[in-house]
Every structure is written in C-alpha cells, then in structure tokens.
C-alpha cells in the first residue's frame, strides 16, 4: 500500500525564519498586486474596465509565496482570479492593466480580459473561467513534463468552491494515479461567491481529498508569505524529485467581494475586519521593520510601487484599443 506523506491538519503558527533579503522582494510583489487591484477597481467603477473583475486583495501571500518557490520554466495554471498569479510569475502591470482596459497592448491583445491572462514567455497557462475545468489542464502540463523528463513542475490554483466539481475530482484522481509533477493549491478563501464552506462542503478540509488518491497533502494558514513559500517549496521539490503530486490547502480570506458586483451581504463587517487584522501585507511589513529594515527604504519601495502602477494605468489609458480578433481562431 502506498502511504500518503501526510502533513495535514497542521494549522500551526510556527514562525518561519525570515531575512530582509528574502522577504522584501515578496513584500514588494504583494504590494504591487494590491495597488494594481485597487487601480483596477477604480477604473472599473469609472466604467473603463468591463465584465467580471475578481480581485485577490487579502489573498496576495498565497500566489506570491507559492510562485516564489518555482523556477522560471515551471508552469502556473490559475483561475479567473489570476492577476496576482500573473504578476508573481513575472508579467508586467502594464500588460495586465492594458488587458483589463481591452487594449491592443494587453497581455493577450484584448482578447481575454481579466479572467484569461496567458503568457508563453512566462509559462503561464491561463487564466480559466470554468470552475475546476483547468485542473485537468494542469495535470496535462505535468503529464507532458513527465513524458519528456524535463523536470518542470506545474502549480495549479483553485478555490475551495472548485473542490466539488468533476474537473477537480478527475484531475486529482489522474494526477494521483499517474504520479504527475503537479502541486494543486486550494486557495481556501472560505467563500464560494456567497456560499460559506459549511454550506458547500461536508468536510471543511479540502486537503483530505488527497488521502483517497494516495497523494501527499498539506494545510496551513496563508497570511505569512514566507511560510507559503517554504511549504510550497517542499511540495515543489517532491514533484521535481519524485513526480509525486501534492494537494495543498492554504487558508486565506478575500477582503473584497467575489467580483465587483458583489456587495458581500452574506458576511458581517466584523468578520471582515477581524481578517483584515491578519492582512498578509501588514504582517510582512511589520516583520521587515522588526528585522531592521529602514523606514526610509520601505517608503522608497512603496513609492516605487506607486509609480509603477501609475505608469501602468497611464500606459493602459493611452494604448490603442484592440483591433483584431480573427487571426487567432484557427492556427494556419
């Protein structure tokens, strides 16, 4: 019998060793993502961005910490809530904001929008809008890595709400059966749109699903970006060295609505405020100060981020609108 390497149930709060050198760039990424999301929300309310816009504010430590555990040639597959993952994987705020604005200079030329970020250069395999439908795709990229022996690892992100749909179940089953080098990361933000976990899951521990497939699992809080990096790195190494997949559940919280149209009537202000006290950005910043980072340096970093996002907004605003949609239906 294959025994799972079981590190589940450990919602521990053990501190992770931290240095300024390691933490500061991750703090910068998280901050840039937050500022970018805020800028998007503003542009959305001005009618400059249309459609669905799912912000990742509050959850930044998960995509940033996890992606920090990767090599550039590793793959990432994400959901519609993909801005943070794309930025962490190296795409620019300019290309992303331009995409949200539906501009020709956008990451995918104005053809995908918020939910469908892709980048061949960054091995970012989307941005997918059908809940759970991308889990088999991630398993497929991992299948290809194993087929070729190229040593790449695939990270696949999804919400706890996705854990009830068939795409997740089948992707998980096949990744477990065939030992595919994939790390399946459930960003458990505790709500699937307006549905809290207790109304969608019989067992509120998504990582337990790994047990049914002889797969390693892990489960931890997602407000410490260094902890996310450290724990995902273990799973990534397992995938790279042994092709063993891991199901990881990271408990987090989104501060904003599911998408821009959601006023969040299904939860209390107090609950949201309680979680905001555990803001991963605040936590990282305090830790940097504790570690001896100079306030002046942090301010400089924050100004730099502000300028980067302002520049990206300007770029998006001034870019020409998207103007071609025919060339990418059938590849000649």
């Amino acid at each position: 019998m294959r025994m799972p390497k079981d590190a589940g149930d450990a919602l521990d709060d053990e501190p992770v060793p931290a240095t300024i050198e390691e933490l500061q760039p991750l703090y910068r990424q998280m901050l840039a993502i937050r500022r970018m999301e805020e800028a998007s929300a503003k542009a959305y309310s001005q009618g400059k961005i249309g459609g669905f816009l799912h912000l990742i504010i509050g959850q930044e430590a998960v995509c940033v910490g996890a992606t920090a555990a990767l090599r550039p040639d590793d793959y990432v597959v994400a959901t519609y809530r993909d801005h943070g993952h794309a930025y962490a994987k190296g795409m620019t705020a300019r290309s992303m904001l331009a995409e949200l604005y539906g501009k020709k200079t956008g990451l995918v030329k104005g053809l995908g929008g918020s939910m469908h970020f892709f980048s061949r250069e960054h091995n970012f395999l989307g941005g997918h809008g059908i809940v759970g439908g991308h889990v088999p795709i991630a398993a497929g990229a991992a299948f290809a890595s194993k087929y070729r022996g190229d040593g790449r690892v695939t990270l696949c992100f999804f919400g706890e709400g996705a854990s009830t749909i068939g795409g997740f179940a089948e992707g998980l089953a096949l990744a477990g059966l065939w030992k595919l080098p994939v790390v399946l990361i459930c960003e458990n933000n505790q709500y699937s749109m307006g549905t809290p976990m207790y109304r969608s899951l019989a067992v509120e521990d998504v990582s337990m699903r790994a047990l049914a497939h002889g797969m390693a699992r892990d489960r931890f809080d997602g407000d410490d970006v260094l902890k996310v990096k450290q724990r995902i790195a273990i799973a990534v190494e397992r995938a790279r060295e042994t092709n063993e997949p891991t199901l990881v559940e990271v408990v987090t919280y989104r501060f904003r609505g599911h998408s821009m149209s959601d006023p969040g009537l299904y939860r209390t202000k107090e609950e949201v405020e309680e979680w905001k006290r555990r803001d991963p950005l605040g936590r990282a910043r305090s830790l940097l100060v504790e570690l001896g980072a100079a306030e002046a340096d942090l301010h400089a970093l924050e100004d730099d981020v502000k300028a980067e996002i302002a520049d990206a907004v300007g770029f998006a605003e001034s870019s020409p609108v998207a103007d071609e949609y025919l060339p990418y239906v059938i590849k000649e």
Partner: peptide
C-alpha cells in the same frame, strides 16, 4: 509511455490532453 490506458474519467483525460498539447505534445 505512449499508449496510455485511463480510468473512466473523460473530463480528466480530455483535459490532460489539452494541457499536454498546450506545452507541445
């Protein structure tokens, strides 16, 4: 390696095909 028997999971293996094709197989 190249002739892969699957369990009964059409959505899963169709999607695995899509992912593998995206990266060049």
């Amino acid at each position: 390696r190249r002739v892969v028997d699957t369990p009964i999971a059409e959505m899963g293996f169709a999607g695995i095909g899509v992912g593998a094709a995206m990266v060049g197989l």
